[in-house]
Simulated assay, not measured.
Amino acid sequence: MEAPPDPRATWDLPGFGRMPRTAELEPLVTRVLAPNPSGMTLDGTNTYVVGAPGSGQAVLVDPGPDDAAHLAAVEAALAAREARCVAVLVTHHHGDHAEAAQPWGAHFDAQVAAARSDVAGARGRLLEPGERLALAGTAVDVVPTPGHTGDHLAFRLESGAVLVGDHVLGRGTSVVTHPEGDVVAYLESLRRVHDLGPSALYCGHGPELTEDPAAVLEFYLAHRAYREEQILAALGDGSGTVDELVATIYAAYPREVWPAASQSTRATLAKLVAEGRVEDDGAAVRRA
């Protein structure tokens, strides 16, 4: 059983810790990297400044941590575009993406928009899957991408690029959190983004993926299937706990990622149980 090859392995992507703080990705988009690197956030959270050149307006997507230095960098990016912030969009409720949403919305006097009311706030807007937002001289399509979390959204731009939040990462693979995450929904969301034919994937963490976005999405789908086969192989004819499965499957990975791996493993087991391929008695799991 071989792991599917990651197409990004041959791409000329910046090494870890070498992403520029601010980068112009295309006429519509500037990326600003937040200073919150970690094993889970990779280089840090990517905040995107989106707007048509010359419109004098911009939208912030995933403001990230409520950090003064990060806010200053975002304000500098807005000034470089000669734009004011007119809205704050959030892909999902995790703090490394959403913490600054309401404080910055108040700071810029801009409406916050998200899939959950606790993220959008009392003056915010609840986004509906499939709606088109006319903002900052451009159009932004709201794409439902549940799986990593139940409220996860992606945003498709007129250029064809998709801001994918934590649905796809610039490095490695995304965690399907448990119990709020759902592997079946995640796989459907991967196919949904693939069917959009994105020109680029602008990720919540890690570098932008522009060389062959479809190949990355296909790898993500293959990777999930591979993890299922690993679980079944690790169980063999016996049984095991989630911790035992993680220790076997992720033996070559740093232990600091094992808690996240445990979440994804539990989410994958839920799918396998629903399909009747695995049984779970609450103490251990075994092949059905």
Rank of each mutant, 00 (worst) to 15 (best):
A222E: 05
A222T: 08
A222S: 12
H223N: 14
H223R: 15
H223K: 11
R224K: 15
R224E: 14
A225C: 10
A225R: 13
Y226D: 12
Y226G: 08
E229L: 15
L232T: 13
L232E: 13
L232G: 09
A233I: 15
A233S: 10
A234V: 12
A234N: 11
A234L: 08
A234F: 11
D237V: 13
D237I: 10
D237C: 15
D237Y: 13
D237Q: 14
S239Q: 12
S239T: 10
T241P: 02
T241E: 05
T241Q: 07
T241H: 03
V242D: 01
V242H: 01
D243N: 14
D243P: 02
D243A: 15
E244L: 12
E244M: 05
E244H: 14
E244V: 12
E244S: 09
L245F: 03
A247F: 02
T248F: 06
Y250D: 01
Y250M: 09
Y250H: 12
A251T: 12
A251S: 05
Y253P: 02
Y253H: 15
P254N: 06
P254S: 11
P254I: 10
P254Q: 07
P254R: 10
R255V: 09
R255I: 05
R255G: 04
E256K: 14
E256V: 07
E256W: 12
E256A: 15
V257R: 08
V257P: 02
V257T: 13
V257G: 02
V257Y: 12
V257D: 06
V257I: 14
W258P: 00
W258L: 02
P259E: 05
A260K: 07
A260Y: 09
A261K: 09
A261H: 03
Q263P: 00
S264G: 08
S264H: 03
S264R: 09
T265Q: 04
T265M: 11
T265K: 04
R266S: 11
R266F: 10
A267P: 00
A267D: 00
A267H: 09
T268H: 04
L269A: 08
A270P: 04
A270S: 00
K271G: 03
K271E: 03
K271S: 06
L272S: 00
L272M: 05
L272K: 02
L272H: 00
L272D: 03
V273A: 01
V273K: 06
A274C: 05
E275C: 03
E275D: 04
E275W: 02
G276E: 00
R277W: 00
R277N: 06
R277Q: 05
V278R: 01
V278P: 03
E279K: 08
E279W: 09
E279N: 07
E279Q: 11
E279H: 07
D280Q: 04
D280Y: 01
D280I: 02
D281N: 10
G282Q: 10
G282A: 09
G282R: 10
A283S: 12
A283D: 08
